[in-house]
Amino acid sequence: MLLTASPARAEPPKDVFNSPMWETLSERYFGQDKVVFDDRVKVGVPPIVENQAQVPVTADARMLDGVKKLIVFADLNPIQLALELEPIQAKAFVAFRMKIEQATPVRAAALTEDGVWHVGGMFLDAAGGGCTAPPKANGGVSWYDTLGETQGRLWQEKDGSVRARFRISHPMDTGLGQDNTPAYYIEKVEAKGTAGVTLARLSMYEPVSQNPTITLVVDLGRDGKGVDIDSRDNNGKIYRASLLAPWRQSQSDQREGALNAP
């Protein structure tokens, strides 16, 4: 009998945060791939957290060439992986808000075309509890009445790219609350340009905050009418909305940032 030996996994680099989860998460997300810490992958988090259920996070790997995927995870969350971005015709950049259960390293990892993961991170000092707390009330309005409603706007950047910021009404339940509410969250978002061409794909998970607010930077040609946002939650419900290109916006659009609700 012949035994085929599997290649030994390269040891991940020593963690600057001394996280007890680093080796486990490295194996889970990076597998056999090479991993390096890289200052060109930048993570932005607030110095003081006022609301553990709505923590702003920015992941920026635009200084790297050939980024195929960008993921964001928090080592000490009960559900670590928050978001994955495929920047097909977009920059390797995403901003969003996430729930934090306790003080933790928050990391972004960018996979480049050569098969190397480039990792950056920041330590977030937070009291926690954001993952297990129930969603806040929706201003007295039923979730059924507002579910999937989307607002947003596009801005043109100096380099010709377009910044898209949009907010989708959704409870984003983690399933970890004491009331036994099952997990219910938006799991897929796709930004499309002219003729339905995919600009970026997002996979989102339970740690993304209630009513997710996302910022992307996409490459939209001057002939583009705008960006279509298609999203789907884990119950299979589909939501669609459209954002007008900056050069097609009226003064009212620019002032209010309105877009067509699904």
Results as ranks from 00 to 15, higher is better:
89 Q>M: 11
90 A>L: 04
90 A>W: 00
90 A>P: 01
91 K>V: 05
93 F>G: 03
94 V>L: 10
94 V>S: 09
95 A>I: 00
100 I>E: 14
101 E>W: 12
102 Q>K: 15
102 Q>E: 15
103 A>S: 15
103 A>R: 13
103 A>M: 11
103 A>Y: 11
103 A>T: 15
104 T>A: 09
105 P>F: 12
105 P>S: 10
106 V>N: 07
106 V>Y: 10
108 A>M: 09
111 L>Q: 07
111 L>K: 06
114 D>P: 01
117 W>V: 12
117 W>D: 07
117 W>K: 07
120 G>Q: 12
120 G>I: 08
121 G>E: 03
122 M>Q: 15
123 F>W: 13
124 L>E: 07
126 A>Y: 00
131 C>S: 06
131 C>E: 13
132 T>N: 10
132 T>L: 10
134 P>G: 04
135 P>V: 03
135 P>W: 03
136 K>G: 10
136 K>Y: 05
139 G>T: 03
139 G>S: 01
139 G>K: 08
140 G>H: 12
140 G>Q: 10
141 V>D: 04
142 S>R: 12
142 S>C: 03
145 D>I: 01
146 T>P: 02
148 G>F: 09
148 G>E: 09
150 T>S: 04
151 Q>R: 15
151 Q>N: 14
151 Q>E: 14
152 G>A: 03
152 G>W: 01
153 R>L: 14
153 R>T: 12
153 R>E: 06
156 Q>R: 14
156 Q>F: 04
158 K>M: 11
159 D>H: 07
167 R>A: 09
167 R>Q: 13
167 R>L: 13
167 R>C: 10
168 I>M: 14
170 H>F: 08
170 H>G: 09
171 P>N: 09
171 P>T: 03
171 P>I: 05
172 M>H: 12
174 T>L: 04
174 T>F: 09
175 G>W: 05
177 G>K: 02
179 D>L: 11
181 T>P: 08
183 A>Q: 11
184 Y>Q: 11
184 Y>V: 01
185 Y>T: 03
186 I>D: 01
187 E>D: 15
188 K>V: 10
188 K>W: 07
190 E>W: 08
194 T>C: 05
195 A>Y: 09
195 A>E: 12
